[in-house]
């Protein structure tokens, strides 16, 4: 079952935001199918827990907190037993917790703002992913997700960075997360963008656009999972031979 890890060795890149958006979207799609999603807050700042403890969290999102480097592997295992989807929100610091969580990932999402500084930090995480891959003898799929782009168009720096990443064989999400007030508001009011009330038509339009963006992001995550994850039979074969 998919374990999706959000990593970046920098705070403020958008890990918690992207994680929450994805969790809510999966929860929405899974609601009538009895499919749940676990969110693991592995950041001592506890931003994700603060959100999850507010009213309005979708019922099929389960929170795991009190995570340390000593129990992260067990917590991921337990979460996998409870729900088919597991999302791990990491701290923006290079730590053992990060190292261990990466080793369990079906997909690592690395949010990054369109600046050289964020890109350099992303590279550090990517080096660690590659190291982990080598040590555990398994490819760990990962991709960079540009965040907080202005609604209009990808900036020159952004395009340049995307090309630079791709030039060095680093996958970049086709879809980016847009800078949206709604993505910020859910952390003040709790719940998902769908439970944010709009005061007027303009606000509703803005929420709708955020919804479109969240949905596109989720679809791309699902596509990546489907493409990277092998059917059960194939996994066994590789494991034995």
């Amino acid at each position: 079952m998919p374990v999706i890890v959000f990593a970046s060795s920098k705070g403020g890149a958008g890990k918690t935001t992207a994680c929450t958006i994805l969790a809510c979207e999966i929860a929405k799609q899974g609601k009538d199918k009895n499919i749940g999603v676990s969110v693991i807050d592995a950041d001592p700042e506890r931003n994700l827990s603060a959100w999850a403890k507010m009213e309005g969290r979708p019922e099929n999102i389960r929170l795991f907190d009190d995570v340390t480097e000593n129990n992260i592997l067990d917590v991921i295992e337990e979460a996998q037993r409870q729900t088919p989807f597991v999302l791990v929100d990491l701290e923006g610091v290079a730590s053992n917790t990060v190292t261990f969580a990466l080793s369990q990932a079906s997909l690592v999402i690395i949010p990054c703002q369109a600046s050289q500084m964020d890109a350099n930090k992303a590279v550090k995480v990517i080096k660690m992913i590659k190291n982990s891959s080598r040590m555990i003898g398994r490819e760990i799929p990962f991709a960079v997700l540009f965040n907080r782009l202005s609604a209009a168009i990808i900036t020159k720096t952004g395009r340049h960075l995307a090309e630079e990443f791709e030039g060095s064989g680093i996958d970049v999400f086709k879809c980016s997360l847009i800078e949206r007030e709604s993505f910020k508001s859910i952390f003040s009011f709790g719940g998902s963008i769908y439970t944010l009330g709009a005061k007027n038509k303009r606000e509703q339009e803005s929420i709708d656009k955020a919804g479109d963006n969240a949905k596109l992001f989720t679809e791309e995550v699902k596509r990546r999972l489907k493409q990277d994850i092998k059917p059960i039979e194939e996994t066994r074969r590789t494991a034995n031979g």
Partner: peptide
């Protein structure tokens, strides 16, 4: 993609 398509896949790590 339906969510079920993904839960049916093994990612046993």
């Amino acid at each position: 993609i339906d969510l079920e398509e993904l839960t049916g896949l093994s990612t046993h790590v």
